[in-house]
Nucleic acid binder design. Sequence first.
DNA 1: TTATTTTTCTACTGTCTGGTAAGTAGAATA
DNA 2: TATTCTACTTACCAGACAGTAGAAAAATAA
Lengths: 210, 210
Amino acid sequence: MAGKPSAKQPTSAKYDQRRQEVLRAAARTFNRLGFHIATLDDVAEELGVTKPALYYYAKSKDEILFDCGRMALDAMSGALDKSLVSELTGRERLVRFFRLYTEVICEDFGRCLVLTEPRDHIATSRRKSIAGRRNLNHAVREMIRDGIKDGSLRQVDDRALSIALFDAFNGIGRWYNEKGASDLQSILDQYFSIFLKGIEAPDTKPGSKR
Amino acid sequence: MAGKPSAKQPTSAKYDQRRQEVLRAAARTFNRLGFHIATLDDVAEELGVTKPALYYYAKSKDEILFDCGRMALDAMSGALDKSLVSELTGRERLVRFFRLYTEVICEDFGRCLVLTEPRDHIATSRRKSIAGRRNLNHAVREMIRDGIKDGSLRQVDDRALSIALFDAFNGIGRWYNEKGASDLQSILDQYFSIFLKGIEAPDTKPGSKR
DNA sequence: TTATTTTTCTACTGTCTGGTAAGTAGAATA
DNA sequence: TATTCTACTTACCAGACAGTAGAAAAATAA
């Protein structure tokens, strides 16, 4: 009977740690191959064990995906907490958040969340995943409205801006490769330059078609 | 022997038209359920036939996905052609392109391309898909460089900007729903306002923390 | 050392799904 | 009317893969 704990049982620290390794191996495999293409044999191989060993730490492929997503959402929540510093302007909070957020989505679990669609999750997992993302979205929209109020941001639609920001920065998680040429911080600098200052030439007079 | 044409045979106009219907039904089904989750039975049901009927018009699920992607890339190429008007500034060309591009990715085939990762395609299809996207990316980067030269855009990194734009506008294809509240044109206006003018308050003096 | 528990393995099953074989109703053609 | 082609259908197969049963190692405790 004492076969599979999976979030019950004494769950020793050692067991929990091993479970983390399982989840991380799964996230990496899902990210490399895609969730639906990756098999649990692939995941097991990544970890150097055989498939049934995984079932000692999780009770289904869906549960594994769910827990990877939960790890990511937790990290994102952490990023949000670190950004909600009342001394900062809305704009500064926004910038700080997306810096931390992008670091999250460039790691195994964050990338896993970004690379899976809500429809890849089973119903209950999907709801939590969507709820988590919506929380972040609302928090960001509030930062934006605060920024408009405190004068650090110009008048913009907070809904459109929030989505545009998330989509643009999520994109980084899809293509960014740590072994690539450019480092993450300079990419972020360029993105913030684009979003904050815009791309239109500043000396362009309204109506001048040149 | 004369069973399955599939890009050979006399291919009457009637056959071609029916094939388009098959592809469109497939694209809609893939978009609704996700490519890997959607079965060919789902596609057949969407069209009101049985699965083997699909094999009269295509020889594999992968081929169907590939042709959906090809339809999308053709439409995107068309959008590019319509944007390369030499009388316009680089900035105007860029805006025009992404207006047309977004319309493409909000339709069945375009959305299908955006919602599938390169890894979902088989090798040969993947190469063409990647090549097609790279062409667009290079064309957009050239527009950006032209815009900088002609003074309609400020100095920005064309590589970063191109990716940020594609990621942000691709995102629209993921969440935009024709039956939703906001219409596409006003969303586009907000996006261009964000990207062109930026979101930083204009009167902010350098260093002023308020 | 022996007993017990934890962790992983070998061998297997059930189901799902892409794809095929073979046949058929109806339209077109001779 | 007889024949052939078009556009499907029903019935099926083979392979892949999530998940399971139970044995076997490892590790830990007694």
